[in-house]
Simulated scan of single mutants.
Amino acid sequence: MELLFLGTGAGVPGKRRNVTSIALKMLNERGAVWLIDCGEATQHQILHTSLKPRRIEKIFITHLHGDHLFGLPGLLGSRSFQGGTEPLTVYGPSGIRAFIETALLVSNTHLQYPLLIEEIQEGPVFEDSHMLVTAEKLDHGIDSYGYRFAEKEKPGELLVEKLREEGIPPGPVYKKIKEGQTVTLPDGRVIDPAPYTSGPQPGKIITVLGDTRQCESAVRLARNANVLVHEATFDAKSEKMARDYFHSTTKQAAETAERAGAKKLCLTHISSRYTKEEEQQLVKEAAERFPSVVIAHDFLEVAID
């Protein structure tokens, strides 16, 4: 499981940073990619990566500002033109359905795959046997959501050497034991699976916040997250400007990560006012409060440890 940053700028595209989009790659876990936000030219950014649009299974839109949304109609159309036939679901605030349906209608774009559109509320927005995705509103002037992607607890590892030592031969029985089933061997032995598996492994947690001021819902969403992706549009000394524009500073992002007990902080949504050299100061400001921090750049890939 990895996060791939496709766009890390704020407001408008810059020479070094495109506007917001992040890919959550779960190719080993479910053979799929989920996108969080889809700013203008996201599909162009994808061309510089190994991602395949047909692998995109879900798209989660945090809010309806253009720098998080305007790339969506083009990507939906291209996915169809490039042979995508698997269903795709788009989640987002109220209004996302009208935006997508209007864009596809007036451009006469016909999709060759089922498109589902879910207008979300706070709380669980998706759940299956592998993942639980929850959303809460942030503080951004318009409805802006953060998403918590929580992988469910995974079965423990099979203790293969112990099985072999006790004369239990490999085969389908190993799979049943790993799945927690009691099995009866041909020689009559009844095998309780518990001694032959390690304890359950906790799932990973990734929190991606939309644009926001500091708020309690951001802390709740990021509680014990392996990775927190938090906007840091402004530097620490621009706190008033950040509040006026419903955004956060580097220091505020770090404070949220610390309060939430997150393990790693990724700063993104960086204003184009900051040069490449000045961006190192942004990292230093956050690191004074939360040492495990990186500043995202386009095409940065972060493994979820």
Rank of each mutant, 00 (worst) to 15 (best):
M1Q: 02
M1C: 04
E2N: 13
F5I: 15
F5G: 01
G7W: 03
A10P: 00
R16S: 10
R16F: 07
R17D: 10
S21L: 05
I22L: 08
A23H: 03
L24Y: 14
K25H: 01
K25Q: 06
G31F: 05
A32W: 03
L35I: 10
L35P: 04
I36V: 15
E40F: 08
T42F: 00
H44P: 01
Q45S: 11
T49P: 07
L51W: 08
P53Y: 06
P53C: 04
I56S: 01
E57V: 06
K58Q: 13
K58A: 11
I59S: 07
T62M: 08
H63C: 09
H63D: 15
L64P: 09
H65C: 06
H65W: 08
G66F: 06
H68A: 13
F70P: 00
F70L: 14
P73A: 10
P73F: 08
G74P: 09
G77T: 12
G77C: 09
R79N: 12
F81L: 14
G84W: 05
E86M: 09
E86G: 07
P87G: 09
P87Y: 08
V90P: 05
R97W: 01
A98N: 13
I100V: 12
I100W: 03
A103W: 03
L105M: 11
V106Q: 10
S107W: 05
S107F: 07
T109A: 14
Y113N: 10
Y113R: 05
L115W: 09
L116V: 08
E119R: 10
E119V: 13
I120C: 06
I120L: 05
Q121I: 04
G123T: 11
F126W: 14
M131K: 04
M131T: 12
A135Y: 02
K137T: 11
K137G: 09
H140L: 04
I142Q: 11
I142C: 10
K154H: 07
V160D: 11
K162N: 04
R164F: 06
E166Q: 15
G167N: 10
I168C: 09
P169E: 14
P169V: 11
G171R: 05
V173Y: 00
Y174A: 00
I177N: 02
K178S: 12
E179W: 01
Q181W: 02
T182Y: 01
V190M: 08
D192N: 14
D192C: 00
P193C: 02
A194D: 11
G199T: 08
I205V: 15
I206E: 02
G210I: 08
G210F: 04
D211Q: 12
C215M: 00
C215I: 00
S217M: 05
S217N: 15
V219E: 08
L221C: 08
A222H: 03
N224Y: 11
V227M: 12
V229K: 04
H230G: 00
H230T: 05
E239Q: 12
K240P: 04
K240E: 14
M241E: 14
A242I: 02
D244G: 00
Y245T: 14
H247K: 14
T249E: 03
A253S: 15
R259C: 01
K263I: 04
K264A: 09
K264E: 08
L267P: 00
T268V: 15
I270Q: 01
S272A: 15
Q281K: 15
Q281D: 13
V283R: 15
E285W: 03
A286P: 05
P291S: 14
V293L: 07
H297S: 11
D298W: 06
F299I: 03
L300Q: 01
V302A: 05
V302G: 00
I304L: 14
